[in-house]
């Protein structure tokens, strides 16, 4: 039973796919400024931390080829070296200061990282990996706090298209989240040149009783975040929050990423194809030829 005395853990997965954000910045109708988006996200995160002194937080960047924790950082990280730590000014609440500083510097590091330069042009984001990281962190926090119950939820800020090769890992993460009673909320940006319909993420929200929201007006992102995604799970039955009426349960075929109404399903791994083949590309099962 959720109640107001529980610890609230919010894990934010930020889609930092450079190609998608670059496309969004140059979109003629609704351009997005990544820096402004991050600013509004940080205010939202501070708002979450200000609600209760024991609210917990995790932020993960879902990059084109890797997933990285932006906060909290492992203790041995050189960023936390006490000597060159800039001293906190007196007009900033310590927790906010720590989080903001960590996120900004880690993001800079991520963007400057030479190793990812090659993957920059690929329009993809490792959402499944980030979800897995988030879920492991949630599990760890739950174990550490066995006396109090922990209410956990994940918020995904998504802009990249779905990756068909990630269908299975994503679905596995979604079911794992369902098992640990973690809601997955999705905040989706779409415009003419970026975003587009996602097929997996609305299913994630639907299965875990989370909220899926397409942001119509990105300049007002903060209001959407505060109104829709800030209330903790125990408040969700009190406040009226938007939900997606029609979830597209159709799966995408794994070979062409076309949405199929009727298709062929592998009996082992349940992956969906539009045409028949001898071997399932996903689980490598060989099908006997039809007689």
């Amino acid at each position: 039973m959720s109640c107001a005395e529980d610890i609230n853990l919010l894990a934010v997965v930020v889609d930092t796919n450079p190609a998608a954000w670059a496309a969004a910045a140059s979109d003629p109708d609704r351009p997005l400024d990544f820096v402004k988006i991050i600013e509004q996200l940080l205010i939202f995160i501070n708002a979450h931390l200000s609600l209760k002194f024991d609210n917990e937080l995790a932020i993960i960047a879902s990059h084109a080829d890797q997933s990285q924790f932006l906060y909290p950082l492992p203790p041995a990280d050189p960023l936390d070296a006490a000597d060159d730590e800039p001293s906190k000014p007196a007009n900033v609440y310590k927790q906010f200061f720590d989080v903001d500083r960590a996120v900004v510097s880690k993001l800079k590091e991520l963007v400057d990282d030479k190793r990812t330069k090659s993957a920059e042009h690929e329009n993809r984001s490792m959402v499944a990996g980030s979800l897995a990281l988030a879920l492991s962190y949630i599990n760890r926090i739950k174990r550490a706090n066995e006396n109090n119950s922990v209410q956990s939820r994940i918020l995904i800020l998504s802009i990249s298209p779905d990756l068909p090769s990630q269908y299975i890992p994503t679905m596995n993460c979604i079911f794992a989240a369902q098992k640990v009673s973690t809601r997955i909320d999705v905040c989706r940006f779409s415009g003419r040149k970026y975003g587009g319909e996602s097929v997996f993420l609305p299913q994630a929200s639907h299965i875990t009783a989370g909220i899926y929201l397409d942001i119509p007006e990105p300049s007002n992102l903060l209001q959407y975040l505060l109104y829709t995604f800030l209330p903790e799970p125990s408040m969700r039955k009190t406040l009226l929050l938007p939900h997606k009426d029609q979830v597209d349960f159709r799966a995408a075929c794994f070979c062409h990423k076309n949405v199929v109404d009727v298709g062929y399903v592998c009996s082992v791994c349940l992956s969906i194809f539009c045409s028949l083949s001898k071997k399932c590309p996903t689980c490598q099962t060989v099908f006997p030829a039809p007689k």
């Binding site: 708002a47 001293s87 906190k88 000014p89 007196a90 007009n91 609440y93």
Partner: peptide
């Protein structure tokens, strides 16, 4: 607002010392 964004001219959150 000042609390959330860390702005404003005040010493409300305590000035830490080494």
């Amino acid at each position: 607002h000042n609390a959330l964004v860390g702005g404003g001219d005040h010493v409300s959150f305590g000035q830490p010392m080494n």
